[in-house]
Design a binder for these strands. Structure first.
Ligand code: MN
Ligand code: MN
Ligand code: ZN
Ligand code: ZN
Lengths: 146, 146
DNA sequence: GTCTTAAATGAAAGTCTTTTTCAGTTGCAG
DNA sequence: CTGCAACTGAAAAAGACTTTCATTTAAGAC
């Protein structure tokens, strides 16, 4: 979670995007979140920081932030996509099936597997998307006491 | 690919569901597909087998088939959910960025990696979703001759 | 086979999500 | 400061999915 506001804001600017009030609000909202948020949730929470934050702006900003690599869309069982902050670079996420809490995984150890896939299929591999689901320590605890 | 029509149809009946013409059409469509299909795609392709197959019926039928365990909703990066027949084992797909042709990868070799993730995060890992993108042999060929 | 009935169907309307359009506003380089 | 492209929110449009309802159909009983 090297996700501090200023680093992420700089990252946006370095890619030639303006740092506007709505964008600050969205970034603050994501920094404060511990689980993937839908665009509507981001708007609702973000209005604490920018009173008239529009939903259209949330959609547009998430697209930019995903392009720039500071947020990532993740699959959420009900309602399709949620968005979480991502460390720029290549990482993966583990999502709790019960409470949706997300942990970011730094290293990607798929290299060997992908090479074998390339050989077996004849494809040149250009990218991959991996999401892991599980049950977080807290939710396991609650199961035990039930 | 133990996905033959009759076995799947029986499976539906055994769970107390009628085997109607629209449902036959949807099942045939899924049996013939090599990639996840959206409800709209299933309707379009299914009309070859049942001319006035309605989209509402596709949604309702997919829900039933998922409950009964013969189809599985999968996350598709653009457009959220697609549906595939539930293959018994666990497989992944490699998709060509140019022509969208899909190849299924039989083995899943993520076990070791997932174990390390479990230890590092404290999560019990219950599932994962992996999509690999690349360029198929044919499309590489065409690049060469351009 | 015919009858009966609950399950299933498609059209239409309704709800929710996401995108497009556009006139006004704002961040920021000069 | 100033100027101007980037950015904004409201409104409308487009899409995705669900609910409602009158009609049809599959499948078991006779
Ligand atoms: Mn999804
Ligand atoms: Mn990776
Ligand atoms: Zn949890
Ligand atoms: Zn190809």
């Amino acid at each position: 979670m090297a996700a501090d506001f200023d680093t992420l804001a700089d990252h946006l600017r370095e890619h030639g995007h303006k740092l506007t009030q709505p964008r600050r609000a969205i970034l603050k909202t994501l920094v404060a979140a511990s689980k993937p948020l839908s665009p509507a949730e981001i708007q609702a929470r973000g209005q604490a920081f920018c009173a008239d934050l529009g939903l259209v702006t949330v959609y547009r900003t998430l697209e930019i932030m995903a392009d720039v690599g500071i947020v990532r869309p993740v699959h959420v069982v009900d309602g399709c996509h949620g968005y979480v902050l991502a460390t720029p670079g290549h990482t993966h996420h583990v999502i709790c099936e019960r409470c949706n809490v997300v942990v970011e995984i730094a290293g990607c150890e798929l290299g060997g597997f992908l090479e074998r896939v390339a050989q077996r299929t004849g494809y040149t591999i250009t990218g991959h998307w991996l999401e892991i689901s599980g049950i977080c320590a807290d939710c396991q605890q609650h199961d035990d006491t039930q």
